[in-house]
Design a binder for these strands. Structure first.
Lengths: 350, 350
DNA sequence: TCCCTCTGAGAAAACCTTTTCCCAAATCGC
DNA sequence: GCGATTTGGGAAAAGGTTTTCTCAGAGGGA
């Protein structure tokens, strides 16, 4: 190929139109269009001449005109209410990833929790003829503040509560919790505590239930999960509750925490009490928020929700929906994975 | 207004075109267009009738068609290489904020540090006829991996190194450092240390210089800044260096840290040594990363770079550029602000 | 030579809106 | 009552592309 050697003016001052290409190549716009798109019939020589001309002129088709005609804009909207972005960002990166590879651009729409703003964004997206919408949030058990049912474009929900009959993707929180607790069991931990977030979160119950199930399956004593806040401070408090009792024999030898911040609080509090991690107590967190997990001492083993993958899958699901392939409605749960660092020790035999 | 009472089918299955509105209202498309846009001359009655029809039909103009004609898409591209997003996110939120209010949508383009990906995104944006581009990164002193000079649309750089002759907005790091050190001075601290990040970062030097300047202005002893990493671990190490010497009298009574993670490491290390914060040593961080600053014990006073504001300003700057108003090229520095929490104590008189 | 088919390419409609020009009717001045 | 101006509204082009239809010419078979 000699294409790379051509002096392509990639950023010309004024866009070159198909009409100009046609004029220079001495053909009609129709022929030029067909030549560039591999349509129609013409001599190979003509086709190549037109292509060469287009390349030399730095022609790039006007997407707006194409979209207008094709009724397909190769653009989707990404709706989120996660301002802080701890969850949104990997998710968005995944979505973007999956779509860019298919030539699709992403409109970013931050709607906070503002219905008016959400409505505004959705209308703007629809006006701009997005091919579809991905809705994502910071909580699996809450709706975005905007109604996306009965839109004329497909919608995929990722990490947020889907409307009835819609396609939704969430992390498998029960599975994630199982990973953590089963890991403890394999390591020979016998008294496994669970310190989690506020009662108002659905995932708190989902994970607690999985926690109980695994303990029962392994015939281990089931402690009552300690519910509090998603904060380090709560981790400290929880340690005070768990390890405040006089008798050392009643203490847990493992703590499965609802998120990494709680886990960090737990680890710090344990150290302050002179209790060793992982020797005396193993700790596992949730979210695998690297910047936290890697800063704890020792570094924190944590459950990763694979949000980037979730985003990718959401992007691909939307794409196939846009392509007209019917997708099974309902919620699809994607597996978590356990990222093992040093806060839970090695198996006895290992 | 009775508009709210109308049964507006906001999400009709098939978009209503201007042609249909015109047909129903019994006028030509030209007249319909003018009626809806407040252009042309016609009886108030005709105009109102057309508007009423449009409303009843739920007509929304096709942005694609409008953009094609107006050569203005009311869309801009946001280029970033900050995957993790600690800096990008508030910035993006600010950009989005400023633009949405003006009816402009934002294409999100994550280019990582991949030139090919960057090129791809830029071309896609250009093809989609964005009105302008905002480039943002995770470092003020690095270029994005893509060349944005000589594009046919205006470009604004926010929190990343601008090309020569371009418009750039960054935080005033020197000013931010001054805020912190001067705050210490006002509180009567006399031996103020500076623990910062890697030498390879330009901001490390900018802040260190401001730190020295303020100390000199106040005739205080200038310690050599300790440069290391942007991590908690480095904060611990730095404390070992600063407070390892035997004589308590040589110890600093304040530490200005290069970011909040370092500050957190410093605070934790001090506590472990039994040195009280803020009584014995005041600590100030940088970035005001709330989730960290609020979790330190005591909560961390920190310099906030006002990234959301920076984003807003970048959005507005791009908008005025797009509107044809010439903007002074060069780098504009936006002030930081000090967020006072409890890690640096109260003034002697307060 | 005549008819048919195939080939290569162009004309024009379509997508949807905006805007410029134009025209018929009405109004006005005298 | 007649020419000039205003008024209300329509026709058509423009924006850049894709696609269908059409058509002239070439080649082939009889």
């Amino acid at each position: 190929m000699s294409a790379d050697a051509e002096p392509v003016p990639v950023s010309a001052k004024s866009p070159v139109t198909l009409r100009e290409v046609a004029a220079v190549a001495g053909v009609s716009v129709a022929t030029a269009s067909k030549a560039l798109n591999g349509q129609g019939r013409m001599t190979a020589e003509t086709r190549e001449r037109i292509r060469e001309t287009a390349r030399a002129l730095g022609f790039r088709p006007n997407s707006l005109a194409q979209s207008l005609l094709r009724k397909r804009s190769f653009t989707v909207g990404l709706l989120t209410n996660d301002t802080y972005g701890r969850f949104s960002l990997p998710l968005m990166a995944g979505v973007s990833d999956a779509l860019v590879d298919n030539g699709v651009s992403v409109f970013l729409c931050n709607v906070e929790d503002d219905t008016r703003l959400g409505q505004l964004h959705v209308e703007a997206m629809l006006d701009k003829r997005v091919d579809g919408i991905i809705a994502t949030g910071k909580r699996i058990d809450r709706h975005l503040p905007v109604d996306l049912s009965n839109l004329r474009v497909p919608v995929v929900y990722a990490f947020t509560q889907p409307d009835a009959g819609a396609v939704g993707l969430v992390s498998d929180d029960a599975g994630g919790a199982r990973l953590a607790v089963e890991h403890f069991c394999r390591l020979g931990r016998r008294r496994i505590a669970h310190v989690s977030g506020p009662e108002s979160f659905a995932v708190v119950h989902t994970r607690a239930q999985a926690y109980r199930a695994v303990l029962e399956e392994n015939s281990l004593p089931v402690g009552e999960p300690l519910l509090g806040a998603w904060s380090e401070a709560w981790g400290h408090e929880a340690v005070a509750k768990l390890f405040g009792k006089a008798g050392r024999e009643g203490w847990p030898d493992a703590a499965f925490c609802g998120n990494d911040q709680i886990a960090r609080g737990v680890i710090d509090a344990l150290r302050e009490r002179g209790i060793r991690v992982p020797d005396d107590v193993g700790v596992i967190g949730f979210d695998n928020w690297e910047i936290v997990a890697e800063a704890t001492r020792p570094p924190l083993t944590s459950v990763d929700m694979n949000l980037a993958t979730l985003g990718r899958e959401a992007g691909l699901a939307l794409l196939s929906l846009v392509g007209g392939q019917p997708a099974a409605p309902g919620i699809r749960k994607l597996p978590c994975r356990l990222v093992v660092r040093q806060s839970c020790g090695r198996p006895p035999g290992g």
